[in-house]
Design a protein around this nucleic acid. Structure first.
Length: 724
DNA sequence: ATTCAACGCTTTTTT
DNA sequence: AGCGTTGAAT
């Protein structure tokens, strides 16, 4: 243990050795916070006699939890297995299943993910006769999620809400909550909310957990929401041995309820807090740090801090302009080649983007260039519709009350059963007080069904019965899934389609068989329910597999906590990054933090690219360089001589800096002088005709053919160009 | 009543 | 581009 402490710098050691009472570790990017967490836990166990099962360590992903357990095991041996290291959500599931009685739930509850939530909300809106075109189901779910994060049940929401429009939300919230309960399901927010309610409302349960967990440690504390905050409080009392680790500059989840104030106000919430700041960075070059510091320093409402390193400046940051997303993708490939030539391995290269949709152009080019890559996030394996179709059968077997899964199951493959038929079925079930899935076996009793439908339902009923028996008899999961694939007709339907796409989908389903087999071999809960739960709580970040010889593509959000030798941040354009929906000062600051997170992932080389035009939602938009680019100190950036980084909103005229090797692309054009009669193309207004010129050519009047309006625009600044 | 094809509309990030 | 809804055909 002694030489382990000697591997820590003074503030790290201070955090590890801190005795009882609240501890706040402000850990800048790359400052070794995981090291501090693992060593502190190891220290608690080995030196201070804390039993491993008395430690609750909350991490952001399941993968991080597993890695933490492994690293602690290296320090203190197998005792580390007894530590509760998990995500907030996993910990809540564990508590809720264990104490389901006290919480008032069936311990076999299932977990609804985003897609299930949306389907359920649509059904609720149908119940309540709310037009989904007038009120977006997603928006309703966001409001409900907000309420749950603030621990408001429908009644609490009613008490809080004042505005007239909230009445609809309230009605839908009630309906949604009722239907979740009827389905024996919880959504992600329920897991937190119900756990907090249980702990705060039931002294016996609360004190039991408080006695058990003498020490609570929370990673990524800046991304906790109110419910999580209350959960930590409830568990940490009365000893308040709580250690929060985080970085206010890396808070990027406020849109899902995270509240940076949780970390900013930690000292107020726990008055005798000991604060340790880790500002020495062991990851990036000085230049990268200087650039990232400069960008994030423009935010208000942060604790002032500056990362530093003793490792030297390294190479300058590069900012490259590209004509469009295809050229950007080619640039990515050439940079991958260049890095490989430097001796960097593929798995040490990452490509980031703001939104998942941007991966497509890059993937195309990587495929064409035969560069091995892996995409993190986006359409996850378990989110593919064919996989969900198959899983729906399993979910109905596991929980006959799951109407959402039932609806999905009956829709795939197509067998003449549509929404009308399903509605009759569920209504029948409700009328006879049976689980929706049981009604399938009683299809002959349901009125208004066609003969073909009765037959299809009878076949489904016997499949479900067979699957249920197979599960009860302990048949292996992969065999059960294979039975489902066969018996449902999904395999036959996909084979019959005969397209490449159908072939691919079938392969995904076959893969699910393998996944299940694998799961059953390695899990300590090899049941069907356990499998379904693992699927529901798995995050994209859990699937990052660094070190298998592939370039990693992912959103900047998914990059949190990772690091790579070479990082390419693409799509550095106004409207893309910062995203156009980030129009409030607060959300703009969050975008800036996101940019900071992305930049600080890079160890050695950081390349930022932007395109002048980009295909978006059907059309092609002109894009200005991101303001974040102009926030990087000029002397940290390498670019062709004499070409200044233009501030956002300045002329979007011909690019002054071109991608290396891209010199063969179009030569710089002189800025086109517009005159009356010219046709122009504007990024947002579309095509138009110049009707007049003012102020010696600086202002032009343009009549746009889309809507017939005439606008006065700054000739140099408007995202607009002359078309020939 | 279901399914399929065409149309119009909206655009993030995710446990 | 992708989705969901609408309208027409089966």
């Amino acid at each position: 243990m002694r030489d382990l402490l000697s591997s820590l710098n003074p503030p790290q050691r201070e955090a590890v050795l801190h005795g009882d009472g609240p501890l706040l570790v402000l850990a800048g990017a790359g400052s070794g916070k995981t090291r501090v967490l693992t060593h502190r836990i190891a220290h608690l166990i080995a030196e201070r006699g804390v039993p491993p099962w008395g430690i609750l360590a909350i991490t952001f992903t399941n993968k991080a939890a597993g890695e933490m357990r492994e690293r602690i095991a290296e320090l203190v041996g197998p005792a580390a297995r007894e530590i509760w290291a998990s995500t907030f959500h996993s910990a809540c599931v564990r508590i809720l299943r264990r104490d389901a009685d006290a919480a008032g739930f069936d311990p076999r509850f299932v977990i609804y993910d985003g897609d299930d939530q949306l389907r359920l909300m649509r059904a609720c809106m149908a119940d309540e006769e709310v037009d989904p075109k007038r009120v977006a189901p997603r928006a309703v779910l966001t409001r409900i999620s907000d309420a749950k994060n603030r621990l408001l049940d429908p009644d609490g929401f009613a008490a809080e809400s004042s505005s007239f429009g909230d009445e609809i939300i309230l009605r839908l919230y009630r309906r949604y909550a009722d239907r979740l309960r009827a389905a024996g399901a919880m959504d992600f927010d329920d897991l937190l909310m119900h756990t907090v309610r249980l702990l705060e409302g039931d002294a016996e349960v609360r004190e039991r957990y408080q006695r058990r967990f003498s020490h609570v440690l929370v990673d990524e504390y800046q991304d906790t929401n109110h419910a999580q905050y209350r959960l930590v409080r409830a568990l940490a009392e009365p000893q308040r041995n709580v250690c929060a680790v985080g970085d206010d500059d890396q808070g990027i989840y406020s849109w899902r309820g995270a509240d940076v104030r949780n970390i900013l106000d930690f000292e107020r919430d726990y008055p005798d807090t000991h604060v340790v700041a880790l500002e020495q960075n062991y990851r990036s070059t000085g230049t990268i740090l200087r650039a990232a510091n400069a960008v994030v320093a423009l935010n208000r409402g942060r604790r002032p801090k500056e990362l530093w390193t003793d490792r030297g400046d390294g190479e300058p940051i590069r900012i490259d302009a590209c004509r469009d997303e295809h050229e950007e993708a080619r640039l990515v490939v050439s940079e991958v080649d260049r890095a490989l030539a430097d001796g960097t391995s593929l798995s040490e290269i990452a490509v980031f983007y703001r939104t998942n949709a941007q991966s497509r152009a890059i993937e195309d080019q990587l495929v064409r260039s035969r560069v091995a890559y892996a995409v993190v996030g986006g359409p996850r394996f378990y989110e593919r519709s064919e996989v969900r179709d198959l899983i729906a059968y399993l979910r109905v077997v596991a929980n006959p009350n799951d109407e959402i899964a039932l609806g999905r199951m009956l829709g795939a493959p197509k067998r003449g059963i549509g929404p009308g038929c399903i509605a009759k079925l569920t209504e029948f079930a409700r009328g006879h007080e049976m689980a929706p899935a049981e009604a399938i076996a009683q299809a002959e009793m349901v009125s208004g069904l066609t003969q073909a439908q009765r037959q299809a339902l009878a076949a489904t009923a016997s499949l479900l019965a067979a699957l249920g028996q197979a599960v009860a008899a302990g048949l292996s999961l992969d065999r059960v899934i294979d039975m489902t694939l066969e018996g449902s007709g999904l395999r036959a339907a996909l084979l019959a389609e005969g397209t490449m796409e159908a072939q691919g989908r079938l392969e995904n389903l076959e893969e699910l068989v393998n996944v299940a087999a694998e799961y059953q071999e390695h899990s300590d809960d090899p049941s069907l329910a356990g499998f379904l739960e693992e699927i529901a709580l798995q995050s994209d970040a859990d699937l990052v597999d660094q070190g298998s010889g592939q370039v990693t593509l992912m959103t900047v959000h998914n990059a949190k906590g990772l690091e790579f030798d070479v990082v390419l941040m693409t799509g550095m354009e106004e409207g893309v990054f910062p995203h156009m929906r980030s129009d409030t000062p607060e959300s703009l600051e969050e975008e800036r933090r996101l940019c900071y997170v992305g930049m600080t992932r890079a160890r050695r080389r950081l390349i930022l690219t932007h395109a002048e035009t980009r295909a978006m939602h059907g059309g092609r938009d002109y894009k200005l360089p991101s303001r974040f680019l102009s926030e990087i100190p000029r002397d940290a950036v390498a670019r062709p001589a004499g070409a200044p980084v233009r501030a956002a909103y300045a002329s979007s005229g011909p690019s002054s800096y071109r991608p290396r090797g891209g010199g063969s692309s179009a030569p710089p054009k002189a800025p086109a002088l517009l005159e009356a009669g010219d046709t122009v193309l504007h990024a947002t207004f579309g095509e138009g005709v110049v009707t007049g010129v003012e102020s010696r050519g600086q202002l032009v009047r343009v009549r746009f053919s889309n809507d017939g309006t005439e606008r006065r625009l700054m000739a140099g600044a408007a995202p607009m160009r002359k078309v020939v």
